[in-house]
Every structure is written in C-alpha cells, then in structure tokens.
Design a protein around this nucleic acid. Structure first.
Lengths: 349, 349
DNA sequence: CCTTCTAGGCAAGGGGCCTGACTAGAATGG
DNA sequence: CCATTCTAGTCAGGCCCCTTGCCTAGAAGG
C-alpha cells in the first residue's frame, strides 16, 4: 500500500502519538520538514492520514498555528480473541494499541464445540467495527496451516473441534490467525522480558508448553510443538510412561473428560507429579537448552518450588520462574501480535 | 566495507561468475551500464575487483572488445575445519565456493586433548593463505558464547576440553565460529533439501541431535540444544532413565571412555536401544514437531528400519529418513556456512 | 581502408531527499 | 488599527544515485 520509507516513518510516528503537526512529524522522525509535508500530502490522498481540524494554540508570539494530523479513523481495527474453557473474550484494538471494545461470553461446562462456537459468535457480534483481521488464542492444539483445533489421542482436549477461521471469517475482512494459548502466553512473556531462549510450561487442566528460540516462538511443522502429553517421562514406581498417563494412573483426570482435575491435584500434590514434570523440564533442557523455564497455570505456579527442587538435582539444571505476565497472558500475547500485524498491514508491503 | 546496494549486486554477480565485462555485469544484475561501470570503478579503487587483463574475443563484427573483471585474488579465503575422533580436516575455500586446499591430520585413539589441538595446528599450518575467518565443526558439545568444547556430566566426550578459538586465532585474521558437528550436518541437510522443520539424530560414538525450526538451526541459549544424553527415556525393563544410562546398563560403552561401543552395538542390536531411541524421537515429535527426523551416524543408519517400526506405533508418529548428505556431512555444513559468511564479509556491513 | 558491431562512456533527466530562505498567519500590545 | 512576534508550512536550489538514449572506441574481416 505504501512503499516509501518516509511514509512508513510518518505512519509509525502517528501510531506512537495520536496527533502531530507536520513540524512535529519532522522532528519526531528526523525527516526534513518539506519531506514530512510531502509525505503527509501523499498519505492524506491515500486516505490513511487526516487533518483533525484541530490547530496549535498560538498565542503571544507563538507563531503560525499548525494543523494536527492523525491516522484516519477508518485505517481499521484488529480483533484479539481468547477461547478457553472458562469462556470467550473478544477485544477490539486500534492502531494505537488501545483496546476500544471488549466482549465476553461464557461457555457451559464441560465445553461443547457448539457452545464454544456460539459464544465466540456472540462475543464478536456485540460490536461491529471494520476489522482487518483477527488473532485467536485457543486452549487446545492448533493446526498451523488450517487454524483448526486438533485432538491428539488421549491428550487433554477442552474446546472440541471448532474452526475459528470459519466462525470469524464472516465478520473479519482479512485473515484469521489462530494459535495455541500457551504460545501466545509465551509471546506476551517474551515481550515483557526480552529473553531469546526460554520455554513456557503451562500446567492446568491441559498440559502445554511453548518454545522460544532465538527470539521467536517456534511452532513446529504442524504447529504442534510443545504438545507434551505423550512425552516419555518417569511415572509412579520409576516406570517410563507418557506424561499424560501419569495423571491417569494417579486418578487425577476428571472422569468423563480428557482434562486434569486441578483441584484434586492441588489437594494431594503427589510427588510423582513433580517427578513426571521434572522429566518434561529435563527434556526441555536437553533438547531446547533454554535460559529459563517459565512456569504457569493453575497448578504450575503453586508447585513451582517443588519443581525447582526437583530440577536442581538434574545433570543439566535450569532456572525456573513464575510467569511475569499473570493477567490474561494468552490474550495479552494475542493482543500484542494483533497490534504488530495491524500496524504492519496499515503500512503495507 | 561496501554500502551501496549496486556494489553488493556487482560483487555477488562476480561470486557466481569468475569473470565478467561491465556490459555482462549490467545485464546479469539488471543494473544500467553506466551504473555498473561506476560500481566497477569504485570496487577496483577499493581493491575488491581487478581487471584480469583478459579481453573479449572480438572477431568479424563482434564489436569493441571488453575488459574482464573479477574479484581481486586477495579478497580472502575462509577455513572450514572438522574435528572428530577420526582426525582433523581443514579446507580452505575461496569466495567462489571452490575448495582450494585441504589438509588432514590423524588423532590417536583414544583422542587426547593435546593430540587434537596438535593435529588441528598441523592441518591448518600445512598451507598459509590469508584467512578471513574459520568455521569449525567439533564432535562434542560446544559453548555457543566461548566456542569451547564442554563436557557434560557422564555424557560422551570424545575430543577433550580444547579451545579451537585459541588454536586457530593466531592463523586466522577474523573470528572463529565453532559449533557441534551435528548442527553443521543439519545445516548441510537443510541446504540440500530445503525443509523448514526437522530434527537430525546422530547415533555414533556420541549421541547428538540438531533441531531445525523455521528454517534455521536452533542452538539454544548455551549452544547445547540437542545434547540428549540425559533425556529421560524408557530403558531396560520399562524403567525410566537417562538415555545414556541405557547404554551403560547394556554394557555398550567402551570401557575407560565415555564413548558408545558402536561395533558391539551393531553386533547385538538390542531392542532396548531401539525403544530408548524411540523415546528420544517421541520427545522430538512432541516438543519440536518436526516434519521429518533425519537419522545419521554409524549405528543410526543401520537401525533406521527398526526405529521406523518403533515410531510408527507411537501416538504422534513421525517420518524417519536417512541423511541426504552422506559425504562428510559436518564438514559440508561448515563449508557452506563459511562460504556464506565469507561472501557477506567481503560485501561488508 | 572501410564496414561491422559491441563495450564503454557521456549527457540529460528524474525521483527523493536535503538545506536554507521565504511566506503565512494568528495573537498581542501599543 | 497596525506593527510585532514567532513558528508552521512551502518554495527554490542542489545533491545523490539511478535511469535511458546516444555517441565514441576500437578490433578484425573483407
């Protein structure tokens, strides 16, 4: 849409500051005044920038009044959506990074696919902004290419096989980007504390893990990296078994579902669980070599101390830490990504 | 050294073709003739490009003869080195990607650190080109920041704690880049068959594994990703234990060393080994989600079929394949990297 | 010695940026 | 009412780097 480097700088300046005069744009970007003026002219013509009608105050010897320019109100918004067993949250954000609207919708328990899809539709329908695209966080494995949720054999599967791309496609002009909630939480963590190499282990009803290598979340070929239910670890009695089976053997899975029974786990805190998760952290240490393993989730955080004691004994110890972003971490990550992409899309190729 | 985009294009063209006239440069790069001529003038002045003295043939109506230009002979060479228990290989390459000299030096068995360092010095001393930098492959864990080899507790350690940066530093003008042999083999594999997400499992005297995610080898924070000796897997009797211990329990480690006894392993081919490596592949499948797992190494390739049968049964099966690059794979990867870096360094920042 | 034909160079032009100088224009104070 | 004050915005000129179009260089064959 826009090709000149100057125009990009002007747009980025207007994303940081809601209104600027041409002279302010010139000093802010380091571009000369004539060039900034020319860029504003081009961008106004393209409809990306508008004269707000506001003028600089003027006053005793304050010189000629200037016109304030800002991004056109219709440059578009993006949608950040979180789909979790607790419910669906949809947030609309603008190019400044403001959340301009928010809608929530509950999901019955246990979550049924139709329920979830319906709640998603309800949350998004509550407002109707022109949305350029959506970023979706879902609390289940996500196929990287189709954006659909995928059930893996005998692994926790909380939302059912829904297709966020299909549900949101009608209400969104552009593409719909779907990914696993833990990946988005790791993205939020990465932006909060800029570490290049870490893993995020999320221990809740589901088991999740995200991997950040060389400063980016690594999703793997199908987008299923970090789906650790079948990782071989040490189970009760020193037997080797897939991680998820440990919870089955200890009676810590909610009957009739694939979910882990968090309340019971927190009541009993069996050492076998700590050992089993220790095996996961050892696998991360050997395969990924993270600087840090971030622990989150409803039972991960409470067990952090015990896990740290366990991993300190291992031949390749690794530092454990609670997540820095505690408030809606997945939505925060999705929101940050939506903002980045919205801005890039406005600036164009 | 060179900043203009034009100059970069001209240099890259001269790296692809050993000699070109200004007119050929213009058509090859898509740049106009005057600009190409100007670039040649700048680059000649900077000493990067020289008039070879050769002239185009001319002939019946063949027009004015042109002057051939090529990279200056002293733009520099790079060194690709492989350090393995079998011996040391040093290859000098020029900016065209030709191997211009090669030296080998044996290492006694078992390899002692002094031996290895001495062989390395010998191999490199055999020629003396002006070397801009070196890329080193070492058959042991490499610390990403220091370039030193690192022994991990109870893991195979074949070369001893040598410091390639110190040994090569004197003979090389620029930096010395050291990495694990399996990472370089994966790099060679990546260039041969452009896959974005795969893992390379190397089963030989040492155990190694390289991870390619989103088209790059991922080394982890310390450079120790893929050092899988302590991964928890299924050992004899279904017991959970670190991968390396399986070999100890089965009497497959060479007495007095940390290495695996490949001959004995190939004689007996115990199913426990297949199961244990199956656990490694399962861990890769869950944590990394590769499109493919490449199997290499002296006992990896022969056991490929058995391993494939094992992984087919797993809840997240993954395709196994023998390595495409069989001839000195680590050196091939180091060579390719050396070429890329040499070229970038000539072109400048 | 003329013809043939391409390598290389020159001239002019254009895009996008700069600097420096000029103009616009509103509020204030006499 | 008009001069003053002061900055926003614009105009003019110039630089850099690229382009196209055209001209010259120059070797070999007829």
């Amino acid at each position: 849409m826009v090709r000149s480097l100057t125009d990009e700088q002007v747009l980025r300046a207007l994303m940081r500051h809601p209104r600027l005069t041409r002279a302010e744009l010139a000093t802010e970007t380091g571009i000369s005044k004539p060039t900034a003026g020319e860029s504003v002219r081009r961008l106004s013509e393209a409809g990306l920038v508008v004269d707000t009608g506001e003028r600089t105050p003027g006053g005793r010897g304050m010189g000629r009044v200037g016109s304030y320019y800002s991004l056109a109100p219709d440059v578009g918004t993006a949608l950040a959506v979180s789909i979790a067993p607790e419910g669906v949250v949809a947030e609309y954000i603008n190019a400044y990074g403001d959340s301009i609207a928010r809608a929530e919708a509950g999901v019955g328990r246990p979550a049924r696919p139709d329920d979830v899809a319906e709640a998603l539709g309800r949350a998004v329908a509550e407002f109707s902004f022109p949305v350029r695209f959506a970023v979706v966080s879902a609390a289940d494995p996500v196929d990287r290419h189709t954006g659909r949720l995928r059930q893996l054999p005998d692994a926790p599967f909380l939302l059912g096989e829904i297709d966020p791309v299909a549900v949101l496609g009608e209400r969104v002009d552009g593409p719909v980007l779907v990914d696993n909630d833990v990946n988005w939480a790791a993205e939020a963590e990465r932006k909060a504390a800029p570490l290049d190499d870490f893993a995020y282990v999320f221990l809740d009803e589901g088991l999740g893990c995200a991997i950040v290598s060389d400063g980016e979340v690594r999703r793997g070929h199908h987008g299923l990296s970090g789906e650790v239910a079948h990782l071989i670890t040490e189970g009760p009695g020193g037997r080797a078994m897939p991680l998820i089976e440990v919870f089955g053997e200890l009676g810590l899975r909610r009957p009739g579902t694939t979910a882990i029974d968090v309340e019971r786990l927190l009541d009993t805190r069996p050492p076998e669980v700590v050992t089993a998760v220790g095996g996961l952290i050892a696998a991360l240490a050997t395969l990924i070599d993270p600087e840090l393993v971030v622990i989150g989730g409803r039972w991960g955080t409470p067990l952090l101390g015990a896990l740290a004691d366990e991993t300190d004994q291992q031949p390749r110890p690794v530092r454990l830490q609670a997540a820095a972003v505690q408030q809606e971490p997945s939505l925060a990550g999705a929101r940050a990504e939506a903002l980045d992409r919205l801005r890039s899309q406005i600036i164009g190729p």
